[in-house]
Simulated assay, not measured.
Amino acid sequence: MTATPWLNTRLEVAEHAAAALADEYAGADVWLVGALAEGLAHQHSDVDLLLITQEFVAEPGSRLIHGIRVDVRAVRETTVDDWRTLLDAFIVTRGAIATFRAVRARLSDLTLLRTARPLTQAPDQGAVLEPEQRATYQRWALADRCEVAASLAEDLLGLAQAGLYPHADLVWDQLARVVAQAETVAAGAPLLGEKWLPSLLSQDDAEPFRPVPALPEPQWLSAAAHSPFFAPVQTRLADALLTLWPTDAEPEPFDEARLGGFGWLPQRYSDGWFLRRGDTRVPLTDGEIRTWQQSAARRART
């Protein structure tokens, strides 16, 4: 964590609130969660706490401590165990995505687990998440960002074809942030709000902030197969996915001529790689994704 006056003050408030909650709810655990637990805070940040109880308790609600709002959410231990179960394994196939839907619906809760920093906890209790569960969280979160990117790419296709170029420009800007989120997740960061991207993008840099990388100026009028302006989206998402699913397979021949129009994006499920555009999915081998990635990288440099 990078110490700031706002961060240090809020960590002190969190400790104070946790001690009071521990007295009020005997046997409960209190976790600091969210951006603050990752060392991110601004001058008006709230403090988010998770109160873990064995039995159901009424929601404690919010409280003010030294003028700082503390939001407390109460959940039962069994609920937290259910969340952990979703992080036992990354299991989603092109023919069975029910688990993926369940995980995406609970992704904000899983992010609480990923960021959780115990403030009060039983001495014999282990880590909030095991390393394998943290790795599974990364894969679910990255798969989620790729799904969002694919949905935005589908919007771009429709808007460009309809000549709604100002609308497409707005979606293009949103896609830039989603791609940046995918890169931060692949680098090990939790999936936090977009406002924290400059800090998350620079977590390995000497500089405290790094702007969200801009995408090239789109050329909607001339958008066609293998459009160079879309290639950076493709190669950056492929690079992020290959960070979590590395392969040393040799590149294999792959006929891209069958991929008409721009908008194709990569995804990785537990049953392998595929390219997606709208509802169309084209399965790829490890060697073919290497070839496709290299081709996208060449287009991005043009």
Results as ranks from 00 to 15, higher is better:
residue 217 E to Q: 12
residue 155 D to K: 15
residue 232 P to G: 11
residue 200 L to Y: 04
residue 135 A to I: 01
residue 230 F to G: 00
residue 219 Q to Y: 01
residue 196 W to L: 09
residue 193 G to Y: 02
residue 211 P to E: 01
residue 185 V to A: 07
residue 184 T to Q: 05
residue 200 L to D: 04
residue 122 A to F: 05
residue 203 Q to A: 11
residue 126 G to L: 14
residue 141 A to L: 00
residue 237 L to H: 05
residue 160 A to H: 07
residue 216 P to M: 04
residue 163 G to L: 13
residue 128 V to C: 05
residue 197 L to K: 12
residue 145 R to M: 13
residue 172 W to T: 11
residue 233 V to P: 09
residue 151 S to P: 08
residue 153 A to P: 08
residue 181 Q to T: 10
residue 167 H to K: 14
residue 222 S to K: 04
residue 149 A to E: 02
residue 119 L to K: 02
residue 173 D to H: 07
residue 125 Q to P: 01
residue 229 F to Q: 09
residue 197 L to R: 13
residue 154 E to C: 09
residue 232 P to M: 06
residue 219 Q to G: 14
residue 124 D to W: 14
residue 213 P to A: 07
residue 239 D to V: 06
residue 191 L to C: 11
residue 171 V to C: 03
residue 179 V to D: 11
residue 180 A to H: 10
residue 151 S to C: 10
residue 126 G to Y: 07
residue 216 P to N: 06
residue 207 E to G: 02
residue 118 P to M: 11
residue 125 Q to S: 11
residue 167 H to Q: 12
residue 239 D to K: 13
residue 157 L to R: 09
residue 232 P to F: 08
residue 230 F to D: 05
residue 184 T to Y: 07
residue 224 A to D: 11
residue 186 A to G: 08
residue 166 P to D: 02
residue 159 L to Y: 08
residue 136 T to I: 10
residue 124 D to Y: 14
residue 142 L to V: 14
residue 130 E to M: 09
residue 118 P to G: 13
residue 181 Q to A: 12
residue 160 A to E: 03
residue 189 A to R: 15
residue 206 A to E: 02
residue 185 V to G: 00
residue 189 A to D: 02
residue 220 W to A: 06
residue 238 A to H: 08
residue 184 T to L: 06
residue 172 W to M: 01
residue 237 L to D: 03
residue 129 L to R: 05
residue 208 P to Y: 07
residue 143 A to E: 03
residue 175 L to D: 08
